[in-house]
Nucleic acid binder design. Structure first.
Lengths: 123, 123
DNA sequence: ATTTTTGGGAACCATTAGGTAACTATAGTA
DNA sequence: TACTATAGTTACCTAATGGTTCCCAAAAAT
């Protein structure tokens, strides 16, 4: 009898945790999600509220999250264009465990900053 | 991720949460950390227990985590070489909030798998 | 008549991440 | 004598990520 492939869920590079990290790990995904926790936003609002993001990256990030069904995109056929974005219920649920990590990160802000500084210095 | 005060520690691309993601977001970091939660491991043990990792990536991942003080590297001056790795207390602490995310990810395994499948399909 | 507004798309480039293969040293073993 | 085990290093290549700049339409405002 072949042993059941009960692979450790945290071991390999396709584990669920890794999948989450892949989904939200892009440079601009967290800022976008964060702004959307404040409610429905238009494209231009997102761009204004996320310092440094370019149109290309904003569009790219939004489209990816839309196809992941983490957010919803609603286009109004008017001119000039109007598009609204808001989190799906799945997006809302995803936010919760991220908050835990975010709280930990805030609590360890100084250590994290030191790590990042050390990395930038050694480059 | 819920706004707490007038600060915006989760908004910009250098926020603490983003810093954590940067630190543990590399392809092989989570598998390495996971194996090390089982205790001290030698280089060859890590390589055996992490399917698919190459020597180059294992070394690279370990060195980065060492300079981040997430793990400790102990070299025995013998031949053939012997090197042991284990988590620091900071590494141990880092694991905890990641477990919360990992638990959520496991609970939503199916949805996550669908997202990843859809992404791979559209490529 | 011209500019502004909005939500993009397309082309192009630079940087980074990650993968493969070959090479290293030295003691012990067959 | 040749081979194995260990813990790497190096050079080279490709793919993915992210950034910049320019282009678009059509109505409204100046």
């Amino acid at each position: 009898m072949v042993p059941k492939n009960n692979q450790e869920p945290l071991l390999n590079k396709d584990c669920p945790l890794r999948q989450v990290i892949n989904i939200i790990g892009d440079k601009w995904t967290l800022p976008v999600l964060y702004v959307l926790t404040q409610g429905t936003k238009r494209y231009s609002e997102l761009q204004r509220e996320i310092p440094g993001i370019s149109k290309k990256m904003l569009t790219q990030t939004l489209r990816k999250l839309e196809s992941d069904k983490i957010l919803r995109r609603k286009v109004y056929p008017v001119v000039p264009p109007k598009t609204e974005y808001n989190l799906t219920t799945f997006g809302d649920k995803l936010i919760e465990p991220l908050c835990v990590l975010a709280d930990w990160a805030e609590a360890h802000q100084d250590e994290l900053q030191m790590i990042c500084d050390r990395r930038n210095q050694s480059k």
